[in-house]
Simulated scan of single mutants.
Amino acid sequence: MLDVKLHITDREGVTHSVDAPTDMNMNLMEVIRSFELAPEGTIGICGGMAMCASCQCYIESEHELPEMSYDEDAMLAEAFHVQENSRLGCQIFITENLENLKVTLAPEE
């Protein structure tokens, strides 16, 4: 089992460094929920189906991420507070290459 260190800044501006497992097929949204870094019911509302943008985050580090899917791109096209570095946390799966990933949660809609 290998964990990676993630640095997640919550919606109040507090940065949390957490160890996320790479062997559980978790995504970033699930990690944020597991560590309770957003109030319950405010993140992952659609269950990780790229249909709500409640898990939108800003990628603050230079990590190479998988290409954005059509569904993720379409959802972000309709979301609020979108920036060039916006991604949906539910579409970013935790892998070894995410060591020291830095993300900031987008404001709640």
Results as ranks from 00 to 15, higher is better:
residue 79 A to F: 05
residue 100 N to L: 09
residue 43 I to S: 02
residue 54 S to K: 08
residue 29 M to N: 08
residue 58 Y to A: 00
residue 51 M to P: 00
residue 34 S to C: 09
residue 28 L to P: 01
residue 33 R to H: 14
residue 29 M to A: 05
residue 6 L to Y: 02
residue 103 V to Y: 09
residue 69 S to P: 03
residue 29 M to W: 05
residue 57 C to N: 08
residue 46 C to Q: 12
residue 78 E to P: 03
residue 64 E to K: 14
residue 20 A to Y: 03
residue 77 A to Y: 13
residue 19 D to M: 12
residue 42 T to R: 04
residue 32 I to G: 08
residue 27 N to R: 10
residue 15 T to N: 09
residue 38 A to N: 01
residue 45 I to G: 02
residue 51 M to C: 10
residue 40 E to A: 13
residue 107 P to M: 12
residue 71 D to N: 14
residue 102 K to M: 08
residue 97 N to E: 14
residue 77 A to P: 00
residue 36 E to S: 14
residue 23 D to Y: 11
residue 91 Q to L: 01
residue 106 A to N: 05
residue 62 E to F: 06
residue 102 K to F: 03
residue 45 I to Q: 14
residue 100 N to F: 12
residue 108 E to A: 12
residue 73 D to S: 14
residue 9 T to I: 11
residue 103 V to F: 13
residue 92 I to C: 11
residue 4 V to F: 09
residue 37 L to A: 13
residue 32 I to S: 03
residue 44 G to A: 11
residue 90 C to S: 07
residue 89 G to C: 06
residue 97 N to M: 09
residue 43 I to E: 04
residue 11 R to F: 02
residue 29 M to T: 00
residue 45 I to S: 07
residue 90 C to W: 00
residue 82 V to R: 00
residue 50 A to H: 03
residue 89 G to F: 02
residue 29 M to G: 05
residue 76 L to K: 07
residue 65 L to P: 06
residue 74 A to Q: 10
residue 66 P to F: 00
residue 105 L to D: 02
residue 102 K to T: 02
residue 44 G to R: 04
residue 64 E to H: 13
residue 66 P to I: 04
residue 31 V to E: 09
residue 52 C to F: 02
residue 66 P to C: 04
residue 52 C to Q: 08
residue 83 Q to K: 15
residue 30 E to S: 10
residue 60 E to C: 10
residue 93 F to D: 07
residue 56 Q to L: 10
residue 6 L to W: 01
residue 69 S to H: 09
residue 91 Q to T: 07
residue 102 K to Y: 07
residue 49 M to I: 09
residue 84 E to D: 15
residue 9 T to L: 03
residue 32 I to T: 14
residue 46 C to S: 06
residue 63 H to L: 02
residue 76 L to D: 01
residue 25 N to R: 14
residue 61 S to K: 02
residue 25 N to V: 14
residue 90 C to T: 12
residue 85 N to L: 00
residue 1 M to I: 08
residue 22 T to R: 13
residue 69 S to K: 11
residue 78 E to A: 09
residue 97 N to W: 01
residue 103 V to L: 12
residue 96 E to P: 00
residue 24 M to Y: 10
residue 47 G to T: 04
residue 27 N to L: 07
residue 70 Y to N: 15
residue 31 V to N: 08
residue 5 K to W: 12
residue 22 T to N: 13
residue 83 Q to W: 04
residue 5 K to G: 09
residue 105 L to V: 02
residue 96 E to R: 13
residue 96 E to N: 11
residue 26 M to F: 13
residue 2 L to F: 11
residue 61 S to L: 05
residue 61 S to Q: 10
residue 82 V to H: 01
residue 101 L to I: 07
residue 90 C to P: 01
residue 86 S to E: 01
residue 18 V to G: 03
residue 104 T to A: 15
residue 44 G to F: 05
residue 2 L to H: 15
residue 76 L to M: 12
residue 42 T to Y: 06
residue 18 V to E: 08
residue 92 I to E: 00
residue 104 T to G: 13
residue 64 E to G: 06
residue 24 M to S: 15
